[in-house]
């Protein structure tokens, strides 16, 4: 091999964390979309959920909500949007980081001059892109196949934007923090996935939140998914539907506060407990 000595001249500086972060985003996306079956399943899951709920509950054209009412498809859509976000952010991140740690991929990266922030940027970029794509697909299917009216006001889309960004960001950092909980990569999905599944049941994704037992509502109110779903309902349900909420209003302030609290908590715990190597390897 030629050129084994370093080039003469001033030492070139290290590449910036941001440029390496963007390179990591490209790599993460390439690897993610290479696993075709996982991609198809992840993207189809919320769409299939919407189809099943709309078919089971809405076949006779029953309406919900205050008159003139709206379809079951429209009623289920916001919860399914929120579920899709938590799956792609929290669940996906926690599982893949636990796997990468177990396989030694994180240890390999730790031995290079790539900064940790670039690694996290790569994960966050992946989540952002996949969440946008999945939500766009879900909304397109809802609008065209299930005749769910899309919001027309700018303020509704502004709400959508901040709920979307806060939800994915919170999901990411909590996923990074939770990735250290499973003891091995193989155990990861068994530990991570039930958390999301249980949250879906108690957060008003599968059932109307106001029909759940009060204690269950209170438990769910501690966690982000309930607020993500409620925030999305405020976007996709017509005016007046807020009377169906337990609090009688959309509670945007509380939504933002709970999501930000989890974002900060996830950041602090995630950064303090993050490990590049397995627990038995220190």
């Amino acid at each position: 091999m030629s050129a084994t000595t370093a080039p003469v001249g001033p030492a070139p500086s290290l590449p910036s964390a941001v440029s390496l972060g963007l390179a990591r985003v490209g790599l993460e996306l390439r690897v993610y979309f290479r696993e075709r079956r996982a991609v198809v399943f992840t993207f189809a899951y919320p769409v299939i959920m919407l189809a099943i709920f709309a078919t089971v509950f809405g076949k006779s054209g029953v309406k919900v909500g205050p008159a003139p009412g709206f379809s079951y498809s429209q009623w289920f859509l916001p919860g399914i949007v929120a579920t899709g976000l938590i799956l792609l952010s929290f669940q996906n991140i926690a599982n893949t980081i636990a796997m990468e740690r177990d396989e030694g991929g994180l240890k390999r990266l730790r031995g290079t001059p790539m900064p940790a922030s670039s690694y996290f940027l790569g994960k966050i970029g992946l989540v952002l892109v996949t969440c946008l794509a999945q939500t766009a697909l879900l909304l397109a299917v809802a609008a065209t196949l299930f005749d769910v009216p899309m919001p027309t006001s700018a303020s509704a889309w502004v709400t959508f934007a901040w709920v979307f960004v806060l939800s994915t960001a919170t999901g990411c950092v909590c996923g990074i923090g939770f990735s250290s909980v499973p003891r091995s990569g193989r155990a990861a999905s068994a530990v991570v996935n039930p958390v999301v599944l249980i949250l879906q049941f108690i957060s008003g994704v599968f059932f109307a939140f106001d029909q759940l037992p009060t204690w269950m509502q209170q438990v769910a109110s501690v966690f982000p998914l309930k607020w993500m779903a409620q925030g999305m309902r405020s976007v996709f349900l017509p005016a007046g539907a807020e009377t169906m909420e337990v609090g009688g209003s959309w509670q945007h302030g509380a939504t933002a506060a709970v999501l930000v609290a989890w974002l900060v908590l996830g950041l602090v715990i995630g950064l303090r407990t993050f490990r590049w190597t397995r627990r038995d390897d220190s």
Binding site: P12, P15, L27, R30, V31, P113
Partner: peptide, 18 residues
């Protein structure tokens, strides 16, 4: 496991100054 030899070596090269 899911990256090619070429992708990995080219990607890791980006981490270093020279």
């Amino acid at each position: 496991a899911d990256q090619t030899v070429g992708e990995l070596v080219h990607h890791f090269a980006r981490y270093y100054p020279h």
